[in-house]
């Protein structure tokens, strides 16, 4: 009996490693295709030779200064948003939680917008400040949602959390529309495409601005995977097992909000990644967070990378914002999940 469980465990683990491998291969394939996609076409061979130092100056410029940072950022944002969604789904025990739907992204967006409308001249100089501001906005939205969906004696009410989130997001976007009136046309252009989810941070500076936050929060969440498993069993079981629920929950929530906020600062309003990534992962590797979290990250990274590539490729030379592509994929998926859920 014991050995059978052990065997099943081992099979699951090897299955998890297999899934991780598949995702990494897919990301590499998407990476190569994405490198080839753009206004100036480069053949795969040219890409390879440039990557290893054998390209012309123009090819190097295109690859290293334009495409590569954008691809790296897509991957980072995808991973960050998906892990954030995974944590939120785990904490609220609600399959439909996502930083976009819950209004956390909108909160981050509002801060970015406020900054742009007051200190517009220095958008490019503020690369490192923006993630921090976005984080504050995201945290404020999260606190508001938390307070409104908390009920004494019952804790966080998952369905109410979604409703409140939708309301908060609607309110914040109304505030943003009012703010856009202050803007000059070129600033408005920036904000409009930011809201549509056009990845605007396309240079290495943004990678540097985003990376510290991911380096801080991602390992923390992975480290807490076991705690998340326990929290998933429900409050009573978790308390019984000696976990101090409220503290752990707040810490994890802070990490999820931090991830979403810093990613949104660079990516703009991309929703649904935090929904799709974890779901796909759960389908493939099950509910254990030790494996679920990394696979979510990979799935999210793949999703955003593919969406960004499609956005650049499908209506050339127009560049469709990544957020639009993700929404076109993500919204039907959300509806599908909704029709399945027993809420």
């Amino acid at each position: 009996m014991g050995s059978m469980i052990h065997q099943a465990e081992r099979r699951k683990r090897s299955q998890g490693i297999f899934v991780v491998g598949i995702f990494i291969i897919l990301i590499i394939v998407a990476f190569i295709i994405s490198m080839n996609t753009g206004f100036i076409r480069l053949s795969p061979i040219e890409v390879f030779s440039t990557l290893f130092g054998g390209g012309t100056a123009q090819q190097e410029l295109i690859l290293f200064e334009f495409r590569l940072p954008r691809i790296v950022i897509s991957i980072l944002i995808g991973a960050g948003l998906a892990v954030s969604g995974c944590v939120l789904q785990g904490l609220s025990r609600n399959a439909l939680a996502d930083p976009g739907i819950l209004g956390i992204n909108a909160g981050a967006g509002l801060m970015v917008m406020l900054y742009v409308s007051f200190y517009s001249s220095s958008v490019s100089g503020s690369v490192f400040l923006l993630p921090m501001l976005a984080l504050i906005g995201a945290a404020a939205a999260a606190v508001l949602i938390y307070v409104l969906s908390y009920k004494k004696g019952e804790g966080l009410i998952p369905t109410r959390m979604l409703l409140v989130g939708i309301g908060v997001a609607a309110g914040i976007s109304a505030a943003m529309i009012v703010l856009t009136l202050r803007l000059r046309p070129e600033e408005y252009q920036f904000v409009a495409s930011w809201l549509a989810g056009r990845i605007w941070g396309t240079s290495w500076k943004f990678v540097l601005a985003l990376l510290p936050w991911l380096v801080l929060f991602l390992p923390f969440v992975f480290y807490k995977a076991k705690v998340m498993n326990v929290l998933n069993m429900g409050d009573q079981t978790a308390t019984g097992l000696g976990t101090s629920i409220e503290r752990e929950r707040l810490l994890l929530l802070a990490a999820a909000v931090g991830l979403a906020g810093s990613c949104v600062a660079v990516s703009g309003g991309i929703g649904f990644v935090g929904l799709i990534g974890p779901h796909l992962a759960r389908r493939l590797v099950g509910p254990k967070h030790q494996i679920l979290l990394p696979v979510s990250a990979l799935a999210g990274a793949l999703l955003v990378l593919v969406a960004d590539t499609i956005g650049r490729w499908i209506l050339q030379p127009t560049d469709i914002p990544t957020g639009v592509v993700v929404a076109v994929i993500g919204a039907p998926y959300f509806l599908y999940l909704l029709s399945k859920s027993k809420m």
Binding site: L96, I101, L162, L163, I166, A196, G271, F272, L315, T318, I320, P321, G323, V324, A327, V328, G330, A331, P332, F334, L335, L338
Partner: peptide
């Protein structure tokens, strides 16, 4: 219904944005 409405709105808004940009 509200959740479905939010998702459908997100979808249509995204599609409108795509059309508008193109």
């Amino acid at each position: 219904l509200v959740l479905a409405g939010a998702a459908v709105s997100a979808l249509f808004t995204a599609l409108s944005e795509g059309v508008a940009l193109y």
